[in-house]
């Protein structure tokens, strides 16, 4: 068996989730190759070649791949697919965008967001917002899969010395073009890769009050998240949303502040190792999943928390 991993990167560095995918691939078993498709992405390709356990890195460099548009990337992957038993992509917005396109072009179905490998053809995946876990077996000749990164440990980022093979194929769909992007700029760790996450909900009251959480985050080296209610209310941008339709996180420590704990939010964070809830409503459902609950006014508790850390 051999496995091709579609890596996600910003041309400079690989997204940390790549390391989790390598672990998922190791659990499936077989040779592991990484595809780095980008523009001026040598640095990302070199980082890929250093990951322990990688056989080779395929590096396709062209303006067509600069933003990893699904139309172009999927055709490249299909061209490279011959001989691979599995094609893995991260369960991120980029991975979810491209993997189904690859599967459809190969004439197979795609398994979304697997959370465990039971056998090379059998996987567990959450359904109904994580309220049920399905075990599914695929008989497709090539398994196209997106992987929930937080469900797998990170592989070693160094220790490997895989060959980097250049791939000159260019696929450029004429009818799609990149216009622009507004990326959130932050010195804090990325939500899905952070070991500590502190999130605020509707109880924060407004966007300015998230500064209270930022201060705690700076002390803990944490990422800052939000519930859907806080995003919908316009307190913070959508890329901070944790939950069924936002980001899935599973840090060592998750601190939920002013979040009631709607089922859709719990779906995105209940695999965290330790959960702390701070909420003035002692009946809030968040306390049913919290290891440590503090009933009280967040506007007093959070500054005190910051001062005691």
């Amino acid at each position: 068996m051999s496995i091709l991993i579609i890596t996600e990167h910003d041309n400079q560095s690989l997204k940390p989730v790549t390391l989790n995918l390598v672990t998922a691939a190791q659990q499936i078993g077989g040779d592991i190759d990484l595809l780095v498709a980008g523009e001026n992405a040598q640095a990302a390709a070199e980082a890929a070649s250093a990951i322990a356990g990688v056989r080779k890195v395929i590096h396709a460099d062209n303006a067509a791949y600069a933003h990893q548009l699904a139309e172009n990337l999927s055709k490249l992957v299909v061209e490279l697919a011959d001989g691979y038993s599995h094609i893995l992509a991260p369960g991120t917005t980029t991975g979810k965008n491209v993997a189904p396109r690859v599967a459809a072009l190969l004439g197979v179905n795609q398994l979304s967001d697997i959370s465990a490998v039971e056998a090379p053809d059998t996987f567990k995946r959450p359904i109904y917002a994580g309220n049920a876990i399905a075990t599914v077996k695929s008989s497709d000749p090539v398994k196209v899969i997106t992987v929930r990164g937080t469900a797998f440990d990170a592989a070693e980022a160094t220790g490997g010395s895989a060959n980097v093979e250049a791939c000159g194929s260019v696929h450029q769909h004429a009818d799609v073009s990149f216009v622009g992007e507004e990326l959130a700029k932050s010195d804090r760790p990325e939500l899905t890769a952070a070991s500590v996450v502190i999130s605020g909900g509707r109880g924060m009251g407004n966007g300015e009050n998230f500064e209270l959480l930022n201060k705690v985050a700076d002390k803990l080296g944490a990422a800052v998240g939000a519930s859907r209610a806080a995003v919908d209310a316009g307190f913070v941008p959508n890329d901070m949303q944790v939950g069924q339709t936002g980001k899935m996180v599973a840090p060592e420590l998750y601190i939920a502040v002013g979040i009631s704990g709607a089922i859709q939010h719990l779906a995105g964070m209940k695999d965290s190792k330790i959960i702390v809830a701070i909420n003035k409503d002692e009946e809030a459902p968040i306390f049913q999943v919290a290891d440590y609950g503090l009933v009280g006014d967040l506007f007093e508790a959070v500054p005190e928390l910051e001062s005691r850390l």
């Binding site: 991120t92 917005t93 980029t94 799609v176 622009g180 992007e181 507004e182 941008p237 959508n238």
Partner: peptide, 14 residues
């Protein structure tokens, strides 16, 4: 305009 993990991305499609 698309909601992506890092923020927002805008594409033009024919």
């Amino acid at each position: 305009t698309r909601e992506i993990d890092g923020g927002l991305q805008t594409l033009s499609l024919k």
